[in-house]
Write a protein that binds this DNA or RNA. Structure first.
Length: 647
RNA sequence: GCCCCCGUAGCUCAGCUGGAUAGAGCAGCGGAUUUCUAAUCCGCUGGUCGCAGGUUCGAGUCCUGCCGGGGGCGCCA
């Protein structure tokens, strides 16, 4: 029996013993938990539910419950009770159990050793099939800080769901067409002079991004010239100029600006050329398509490098260039069933009033489709391709309304799977006011590659300063592991709906509640094992699957309070995985690892492993340390963080 | 104006779906260790959980209103 099933069995037995007059199958399920302080025992059963049924004071009921449990589980230990109960005691409205430390240690350690890399997981494929869509980059510029958070949430959420037994499909939906893509294409067509990422030695996405920025600059210049000709002062539209305005004056100024922008868009030679290019693309113009293909390949090769570096993986890539015409047939269907309605000007609207939402355009008056129409089509396509039970969209919180509209439409169109769609929203990543040295090529956003480089460099400096490096290569590899560990833990430990203010120079530190602290614990355990082998206290032939072999370890010797705290934490890993997956959040995984390694640090500081008072105790502690390392690897794996052998 | 999210220690954040005396890290102060890697450990200081009501035996957690911050209210994506 595993600890988890032991606890479930125990919960059942305790419920049966509760002093209420209820048939056994009508008794409420017990939610066992850990008492707030260890002096109060190892496991707590709340008496509230039973007290409510019995219409009694919970503390009194707990007192009576205590007596019955004492008679049945303490004095007469049934054979299924793998962890012996030493004592049971009512603390107010709680019934708390005190375990025999030795048998608890044996059960928990046995679980970790037996299950190893799968400890804490639910059997793969036993749950529903879930698709997770994340990343969703545009092919006109490199990935930035926002994409980093998106990828980290997407990757780790996928891993978490897989660990909880679900079949997970990871997909990317690449926005590779549209007016914004044509902008970088046009700039390259006019000013590229045939240069390539190979000829300039640039990463493909940065190469293309440079032309996107160039286009932006050219338009700005054109706009300034145009404004001058028209006798319009652009300065009046600046933030500073608007600061002095209030109410109607401000509104009037903003209307003026809008009108001028619209006028310029029409008159602009560059904008005209871009619109023309988009028309040519849609008409299948060969030269334009060839240029588009070439530039997309450059960008995508750059993305692949960044994904590879971060550990981002996808089972399938959807491209909007293939899906952008989808959805129109759904509109036809919706018109028939009255979900959609055609207005006099020819535009088609989704009637969302019944869902408490405002009506939404799905076809423009010229018959072309909008973003949500495509998304409708893509949703259907995904279900046709994979037939999943749930579909999770990892997309920023600014698109909350969009997904409410989308899911409402899918429901009104009566797709049976519509209820399984979920928007995994997350808050913005903002930069502090001054913005440090991590200015991006665009000047406003932090570039993902720059960010990874900066963290790598910070970690490398620390390694060199501490003299931890054995070779330059090893130092670089460790620096990469640590830099990413710091970033990933920092981003993932906060709940997704919070905005993050990200100061690359100050907020990522390597001490305290950080990724490197968790990694350090792992590295030190490996260090203990290495030292043990060196000193002959542990021999290679004693190791099986990374643990000391069966029969060499008497776990029941692990009775120190600090050891017990670690063991209980290890025991909770599986429950934590399950509830986190149910709640679709990885933050508890990150926080669990920080807690576990803190408890472990306290333990090994207090109780020496290799110099323990007896060889038996020494081996038991080695096994416990190895178990901690295993769970740290399992948890970090979910977060896509590497666990280094040394650092 | 309407809708959504956030507000917990000086700072950055946890808080197990409503339970026991609200916890970490950083910063500050004071200690430990001739190390199993000091990227460590221990102690102290620090809280009207934005404010006001309400529901409940019990509220940081649920409801209502207000205040402050962010986002959204396109025939953009």
């Amino acid at each position: 029996m595993s600890y988890l099933s032991f606890e479930a069995r125990l919960a059942e037995a305790l419920a049966q013993l509760a002093p209420v007059e209820l048939p056994v199958d009508e008794r409420p399920a017990l939610a066992l938990g850990r008492p707030p302080r260890k002096e109060m025992g190892d496991l707590a059963a709340p008496a509230f539910e039973f007290a409510k049924r019995a219409k009694r004071n919970p503390a009194e009921l707990a007192k009576e419950w205590e007596a019955r449990v004492r008679a049945a589980l303490v004095h007469e230990t049934p054979e299924w009770l793998e962890v012996t109960i030493r004592d049971v005691k009512a603390f107010g409205p709680y019934l708390n159990l005190f375990f025999d430390p030795g048998s608890l240690a044996a059960l928990v350690l046995g679980d970790v050793v037996a299950e190893g890399a799968t400890y804490g997981q639910v059997a793969p494929g036993s749950g529903p099939k879930i698709m997770v869509e994340y990343s969703a980059p545009n092919t006109n510029k490199p990935l930035h800080l926002g994409h980093v958070r998106n990828n980290l949430i997407g990757m780790s959420l996928s891993n978490l769901l897989a660990a909880a037994g679900n079949e997970v499909i990871r997909v990317n939906l690449v926005n590779d067409r549209g007016i914004h893509i044509c902008k970088s294409m046009l700039a390259y067509q006019r000013f590229g002079n045939g240069e390539t990422p190979e000829s300039t030695g640039e990463k493909g996405d940065h190469f293309v991004g440079r032309y996107y920025i160039l286009f932006d600059q050219l338009v700005k210049e054109e706009k300034a010239t145009y404004a001058q000709k028209q006798g319009v002062d652009l300065a009046q539209f600046s933030k500073d100029a608007k600061k002095g305005l209030e109410g109607d004056a401000l509104k009037a100024r903003e209307r003026e600006e809008e009108a001028f922008d619209a006028q310029f868009e029409e008159a602009s030679e560059l904008m005209g050329a871009v619109r023309e290019m988009l028309r040519a693309w849609e008409a299948g113009d060969e030269a334009v398509l060839a240029l588009w293909k070439q530039m997309n390949e450059w960008v995508l090769s750059g993305f692949r490098q960044t994904y590879e570096r971060m550990g981002s993986k996808f089972d399938y890539w959807y491209f909007e260039s293939n899906t952008w015409t989808l959805g129109k047939d759904l509109v036809e269907k919706g018109l028939e069933t009255g979900v959609f309605e055609r207005h006099d000007d020819g535009s088609v609207w989704a009637k969302l009033e019944s869902k408490g939402l405002a009506d939404k355009v799905v076809l423009r008056s010229d018959g072309t489709s909008v973003y949500i129409t495509q998304d409708l089509g893509t949703a259907v396509l995904k279900h046709r391709d994979y037939g999943m039970d749930r579909s999770i969209y990892v997309v920023g919180s600014e698109q909350q309304q969009h997904f409410k509209n989308l899911f409402a439409m899918l429901e009104l169109l009566e797709f049976p799977w519509a209820g399984g769609c979920y928007h995994a929203s997350y808050g913005m990543v903002t930069l502090p006011h001054g913005m440090g040295r991590l200015k991006s090529r665009e000047g406003t956003k932090v570039d993902a590659d720059d960010l990874l480089d900066t963290l790598h460099d910070l970690a490398l400096a620390k390694i060199e300063e501490g003299g931890y490096a054995e070779s330059t290569d090893a130092a670089r590899e460790t620096a990469e592991t640590i830099g990413q560990g710091a970033l990933k833990m920092y981003v993932l430990q906060v709940s997704p709906d919070k905005n993050i203010q990200f100061d690359p120079n100050e907020t990522i530190s390597f001490t305290g509640d950080t990724g490197p602290a968790v990694q350090y614990s792992h590295a030190r355990i490996q260090g203990i094992l290495r030292k043990g082998l060196e000193q002959g206290k542990v021999t290679a032939d004693q190791l099986e699957g990374g643990f000391l072999g069966h029969g060499l370890v008497d776990a029941s010797l692990l009775v120190e309070a600090e050891e017990q705290e670690v063991l209980k934490k290890l025991a909770d890993f599986g429950t934590m995985i399950r509830t986190s997956a149910e709640n679709l959040t990885v933050a508890p995984v990150a926080n669990y690892l920080l807690d576990l390694t803190k408890l472990y640090a306290r333990m090994y500081h207090e109780h020496e492993v290799l110099t323990a008072s007896s060889p038996e105790l020494m081996r038991a502690r080695v096994q416990l340390a190895l178990a901690v390392a295993q769970v740290v690897r399992n948890g970090l794996g979910i977060l896509t963080i590497d666990a280094p052998e040394r650092m």
